[in-house]
């Protein structure tokens, strides 16, 4: 069944590992929605959060291919796990009228966004939410301020939830 999946990947923090993993996806024609990477509490290990859409059989194969890569220490499937997953997003809006400004502060209030910078007519909004929520916010802002917004997204970062 085609659905969204998430993998947390522990890899050696070495030159070329990101190229190896991303190349594995392109080389084998696996779909890749987002990939984030950063070092962990152990500076020799990096951790990637990989989000993708695939059917069951392809997903099994992806996990196996990742596992057999010499640089990969551990593959953790987050698809059916309780996790915290967020994506950082910045949005810049410009050419704002007085009314726009009032609206933007209201939107920020309603959707719990943070205005982190603004001048006479422009804003920068910071948003740390799920990928779907970020999609909706882009949709709203695009509708209200067509051709006046700039979006940069960081990709999903996930960690396993605490067990109650």
């Amino acid at each position: 069944m085609l659905k969204k999946r998430c993998i947390s990947l522990y890899v050696e923090n070495e030159v070329g590992v990101l190229a190896k993993i991303s190349g594995l996806f392109s080389g084998k024609s696996y779909n890749l929605d987002s990939l984030t990477v950063g070092t962990t509490e152990d500076s020799t290990i990096s951790r990637m959060t990989i989000c993708l859409t695939s059917d069951d059989q392809t997903f099994e194969q992806i996990k196996k291919q990742l596992n057999r890569s010499v640089e990969v220490i551990k593959v953790v499937d987050f698809t059916e796990t309780q996790i915290h997953m967020k994506e950082l997003m910045f949005i810049k809006i410009w050419d704002c009228s007085k009314n726009d400004k009032t609206d933007i502060f209201r939107i920020a209030q309603v959707y719990d966004l943070k205005v982190i910078d603004y001048d006479m007519s422009s804003f920068i909004i910071e948003c740390t939410k799920s990928e779907e929520e970020n999609n909706s916010i882009i949709k709203i802002l695009n509708k209200n301020y067509p051709n006046r917004i700039e979006v940069v997204r960081g990709g999903n970062v996930a960690i396993e939830a605490l067990k109650i």
């Binding site: 070495e14 030159v15 070329g16 190229a19 190896k20 190349g23 594995l24 080389g27 010499v70 640089e71």
Partner: peptide, 10 residues
């Protein structure tokens, strides 16, 4: 050669 060998390193 990264994707045609088992492991490659400088």
């Amino acid at each position: 050669t990264r994707h045609i060998c088992k492991y490659a390193v400088t």
